[in-house]
Design a protein around this nucleic acid. Structure first.
Length: 235
DNA sequence: AAAGTTGTCAACCGCCCTCCT
DNA sequence: CAGGAGGGCGGTTGACAACTT
């Protein structure tokens, strides 16, 4: 039986009060982050150390960017999710001022639903069988490219995660390499993907939705070698 | 206006990993 | 090497708000 991390009878739970926030902020300003297990006692808080850490990281930290996600942030989340899966902390690490919790919540409440409504499986980023963008130009793109890309991306994702996990691997470099590597890998397929893993892309998801709403994507012709819209990823 | 439903997001839980002894 | 402690993470919950009937 695992020991609880703190005595539940002596700790408060639920929403933090302003006074508690102030105590936590004051303590960290003076002593810095670290040693979360001792912090509550030192700071005079009746909270579990983990709860203090979470409150600081997700809410009180001064460099946190709160509020609505920008379109380019949303695009980046989708791309990184296609590459890394539910590794929210890694994804959040690429979004300055965003926390893993915030990214995870945003994914579950906004992006996931959006992808589903567009006929895309949010887990593997593939189009469902019943949806196609190319009604007038069979065979559908997803049949040609997704099988080809799916395997490559899965392999690449595994490699990427291994690198990120391994000692001394620079996350920035690994992700950058993964983007380039995938571009190389996909060059043999019919269509190319823009996998630039940075904020700022030529076609934003909102524009994509707009075009889809207007039906323009359904009739869109994609010539050989032409670049796909960057989102969503047809993996 | 009230009741029911859905959406959002802060916070908690418990598992896993790493570090230290 | 084994075991414990602490930190980090992803999944889930629950309170509250917003919306619908």
């Amino acid at each position: 039986m695992r020991k609880p991390c703190c005595d539940k009878k002596l700790t408060n739970k639920g929403a933090w009060t302003e006074q508690e926030d102030q105590k936590l902020v004051d303590y960290i300003r003076t002593h810095g982050e670290g040693c979360w297990s001792d912090l509550p006692k030192q700071a005079g808080l009746r909270r579990c150390g983990k709860s203090c850490r979470l409150r600081w990281i997700n809410y009180l930290r001064p460099d946190i960017k709160r509020g609505h996600f920008a379109e380019d942030e949303e695009d980046l989340i989708i791309k990184l999710h296609a590459l890394l899966g539910n590794r929210w902390s890694l994804i959040a690490g690429r979004l300055p001022g965003r926390t893993d919790n915030e990214v995870k919540n945003y994914w579950n409440t906004h992006i996931r639903r959006k992808l589903v409504s567009m006929g895309i499986d949010p887990q593997n980023h593939r189009l469902h069988q019943t949806h196609t963008l190319h009604h007038h130009h069979p065979p559908p793109l997803e049949n040609q490219s997704s099988k080809c890309l799916g395997t490559k991306v899965n392999t690449l994702a595994t490699k990427t995660l291994d690198k990120v996990k391994s000692d001394g691997a620079d996350q920035e470099q690994v992700l950058s390499d993964a983007g380039s590597s995938l571009a190389d890998e996909t060059s043999s397929c019919r269509c190319e993907l823009n996998l630039d893993l940075r904020i700022g892309f030529p076609l934003l998801s909102s524009q994509y939705s707009e075009q889809q709403d207007q039906g323009s994507l359904q009739d869109m012709q994609i010539d050989e070698g032409e670049q796909l819209p960057t989102l969503p990823l047809f993996l």
